[in-house]
Design a protein around this nucleic acid. Structure first.
Lengths: 246, 246
DNA sequence: AAGTGGTCTAGACCACCAT
DNA sequence: TGGTGGTCTAGACCACTTA
C-alpha cells in the first residue's frame, strides 16, 4: 500500500511480517483462489500473535483485493470473476447506457520474441520467447477494443491457441486456473493515437481515426509482472474511467 | 471506501458516526487545511469513545487523503501543495524523463451559463451562472494541456480574473484559501479526440491531431462537486497513468 | 447451536518530534 | 522531557451464515 519509495523503518512492524507470510502462503499455492483461508483465530494462534494484529495484516490484503472477507462465512482468496474482470480491470464504459460484458474474439495467436520494451515490462531477457495474442472485444453490437497481449512463454509454458480459445472463462481466471498465475493489479499508461490499417479494419472505423491506446502491465503478488497488453479503444461511444482519491 | 451500492447496515458502526462528526467539523471550518486537529487521546475523550475506535475513524479519513498523520507531530488537515496538485491530481507524466511542475498560463476568463451537462456535473440548476476559465499548461518547454474549467459563480462568489491570475499558489490551494473549498477527489472520464482549431493553435499541433480528452468532476467533502474541467492533452511526449488495485 | 468475521474497549509500550 | 502518533495485546460482545 505504501509508496515504493518509502524508506523502510529499521524494524518492520509485526503485521507487515505476517502480511508477508500470508502472501508467501498464497504464492506457494497453500490456499487457492476461491477457497477460504483458515479462520482468523486459528491463524493468530498459528503465528503466535494477537487477533488484532492478524486482522491488521489481513486488512492490508483485503484492501489490495487479494483476500475477500465475508462475515459469517470466512475469508477467501480473491478469484477472477466475470464481474471483476469486466468492471474492475476493464475500465471502458459506455458514454451513456448500461455496462455490458465484453464478447472476446480471438483473432490471432502467435509466438514471437521480446523486444527491449516488452522484455523490460515483463522482466524477461530481451529476445525471450513470447506468446502474442490479439483479441477484439465487442461491447453490445460493435467492436470497440483491440487487445494485443504478450505473455512470457516460459511463464505460460504449454499454452496453446486451442486452450486459449476454449478456455471457458475470463482471461485472468484462465491464467489462474491453468497456470496458477493471479493478476492482482495493473499499471496503465494512456495516449491518444490514430487508427492504423489493422485497427481500423478490426474496429470498423476510418483509417486515422483517434483511438485511445492503453499500455497495461498486469502484476501478480509481489508486483511480479505477468502480462503486457496494448489496448486500442474506439472512444466514439465509450470512455475510460478513473476515480482519484477515493 | 465502500461501494456506493453497499446496503447500509441497520445500525451504523460507531466509527462511521465518528467519521461523520469529524467531516462535519471539517465542513464547518472548525479545523482549517494545514492545521492540526486535536490529539487522538483528546478526541477520543471528547467523543467518549476508546482510542482504538477514534483511530479507526481517523484511518478512514487518512485513507481518503483528507487527513494526514505525522508521527510525533500530530494529525493535519490535508492541504493542496504544489506536489499534491502536480503529481497526485494531475496524472500526466512524460513518456520518458523526469516529471516537472506545470507552468499554468491563463488564456481566457469569462462568465457563462450552465448547459444541462455542466449543470448536472456541478449539481446546479441549468442556466446557472458560471465562471469559465481556460488555461494552457506548459510542461518543460512545450504547451501540453488545455484546461477548460467551469465553476459555479454562486459557490465562488467574488472570483475575479485578477484574483485568479495573481493567486500565487496552485489552483486547488487557491480554492481552499480564498473560498474554503477543499478538493479531495476527482472523477475522470477519458476519450481520444481530434484537435479543433483552438486547441491546435494553443498546443502548437496540426489541426485534427489526436488529443486525449479528460472530463473531470472535482469533489469536496461529502462528494459535493465543485469544479468541472475538460483537459485536452497532447500525448505525443506525455501520457496519462492509472494504477488499479494498489 | 456452532463458527465465522465485525466492532469496541482498556491499557501497555514503542518511535518520533519539538523544546 | 513531554506530547504525539504507531504497534500490539487480551478479551468481550455483536452480526451473520450454515447446518
Amino acid at each position: 500500500m505504501n509508496d515504493t519509495t518509502t524508506a523502510a523503518p529499521l524494524r518492520a512492524p509485526l503485521y507487515r511480517d505476517i502480511e508477508r507470510r500470508l502472501t508467501d502462503a498464497l504464492t506457494h499455492g497453500e490456499w487457492k483462489p476461491g477457497t477460504a483461508i483458515p479462520p482468523e483465530r486459528r491463524l493468530a494462534a498459528r503465528f503466535g500473535i494477537s487477533l488484532g494484529t492478524l486482522r491488521r495484516a489481513v486488512d492490508e490484503l483485503v484492501a489490495a483485493n487479494i483476500l475477500i472477507r465475508q462475515q459469517g462465512r470466512g475469508t477467501f482468496v480473491a478469484r477472477h470473476t466475470r464481474d471483476r474482470e469486466a468492471f474492475h480491470f476493464l475500465r471502458i464504459v459506455p458514454g451513456r447506457g448500461p455496462k455490458a460484458y465484453p464478447d472476446v474474439r480471438l483473432v490471432a495467436f502467435a509466438r514471437g520474441k521480446a523486444g527491449p520494451d516488452v522484455a523490460a515490462a515483463l522482466a524477461v531477457a530481451p529476445g525471450a520467447s513470447l506468446f502474442r495474442i490479439r483479441n477484439v472485444l465487442w461491447l453490445g453490437t460493435a467492436p470497440v477494443i483491440v487487445d494485443d497481449i504478450a505473455l512470457s512463454a516460459a511463464r505460460f509454458a504449454g499454452l496453446t491457441e486451442r486452450a486459449f480459445r476454449e478456455r471457458g472463462s475470463t482471461i485472468y481466471r484462465f491464467y489462474e486456473e491453468a497456470f496458477g498465475i493471479s493478476v492482482v493489479r495493473t499499471r496503465e499508461r494512456l495516449r491518444a493515437t490514430r487508427a492504423d490499417a489493422v485497427a481500423a479494419r478490426l474496429l470498423d472505423v476510418p483509417n486515422g481515426s483517434p483511438l485511445l491506446a492503453i499500455r497495461r502491465i498486469a502484476q501478480s503478488y509481489r508486483d511480479v509482472p505477468v502480462e503486457y497488453r496494448i489496448s486500442r479503444v474506439d472512444t466514439a461511444r465509450h470512455e475510460y474511467w478513473a476515480d482519484i482519491g477515493s
